[in-house]
Simulated scan of single mutants.
Amino acid sequence: MNESKTSTRTTAETQSSAAVVSVCCGARLHFGLLDTAAPFGGVGVMIDQPATEITVSQAPRFSCDGHQSDRVLAIARRLQHSMRWSDLPCCRVTIIEQPSAHSGFGSGTQLSLAVAETLAAFCDVRLPQETLALEIADRGKRSAVGVHGYFHGGLIYEDASSDSTEAPEFGQLNPIHRRIELPESWRVVLMIPRSSAPPMHGQDEQTQFDHLAAGDPQRQARLREMLSTELLPAAHSHDFPAFANAVQRYNHESGLLFVSSQGGPYNGAEVASLVASLTQSGAVGVGQSSWGPGIFAWCDSLDSAQSLCEFVETHWQDQLSNLMIASVRNTARSIHHSTSTSS
């Protein structure tokens, strides 16, 4: 049953027949923004690791344990306010799996969207995806790559509409300009340096953007040209060498928008050094995801990804806190309803 925003029914009356609702989603690699000011724009791709999994189950009252309980409670309260409920939903939110925060893989957006959608589904509430993202999850107000990726998967290029360079109205997501499914055989090697510059997030991130000047128009033009003539055509044609080269060049060029905050195209000396070492050793499609410190390198197969991991472990194992292989996720998050609480 659809729930309208004018509902004043209690939460006990709004719960669905499902005893458990679960959502599982992947992570977001961000290749870089097009500008430091609205409408920003940018490109990235969804991957299957590190994963996030949330369950919501029946309970006498609302509860969530763990270090993300404040975030989860805030999302639940926004849903309660949006639906004009008198109480929070009677359920328990359990975070089954989540990646380390502030590594550059969009974990905050994926977690918030998963919690928002799972709570809404548990309460049998159907809201537009944009409402879930902006109003309930409180995400997507700068970069929309992770939001669109959560709902659609694949490579996402988001920007202002193709016939306008104006920013969307306040409270709107940048639309998807182009979505491309990449070959399932491609892999990404993910690395997180053990030592790196402090991660940028929350109010610190907003402060950095507040002090950044709008990007150089010539750099913006180069970034859009790279996308339209190199990166997107290579992705569409599944031309791995051209794609990897374009991703690395675009990532470096976009990083130069943030020199005043990062000290260079990458966030700190440790990330810059590892990117340079990987490139000099023959790795391709190397870059920093978002603010980092997460680093990626593209491979055309699982075998080549495993070989790269072995090489990295031999040469830089002591410099890394995490090393993994991810696949492209061309599909949306998965959502499952169960009428039984048994496992």
Score class of each variant (00 low, 15 high):
N2H: 12
T8L: 11
T10M: 06
R28E: 10
G32A: 11
D35T: 08
T36C: 08
G41T: 01
P50V: 05
A51L: 01
S57H: 03
A59M: 02
G66I: 07
Q68L: 09
Q68C: 05
A76F: 05
M83N: 07
C90K: 06
A101L: 13
G104C: 12
G106F: 04
G108P: 01
L113N: 01
A116Q: 06
E130H: 08
A133H: 07
A137K: 00
R139V: 10
H148T: 02
Y150F: 15
L155F: 08
G171N: 03
N174Q: 12
P175R: 06
I180F: 05
E181L: 04
W186F: 00
P193G: 06
S196H: 15
L212N: 03
Q220T: 04
A221S: 15
A221P: 01
L232R: 06
P233D: 06
P241H: 08
P241M: 11
N245A: 15
V247W: 07
N251S: 10
S254G: 04
S254M: 03
L256D: 00
A276N: 14
T279L: 11
T279E: 15
S281H: 10
G282L: 11
V286I: 11
W291T: 04
L302N: 03
A305D: 09
Q317R: 14
Q317N: 13
R329H: 10
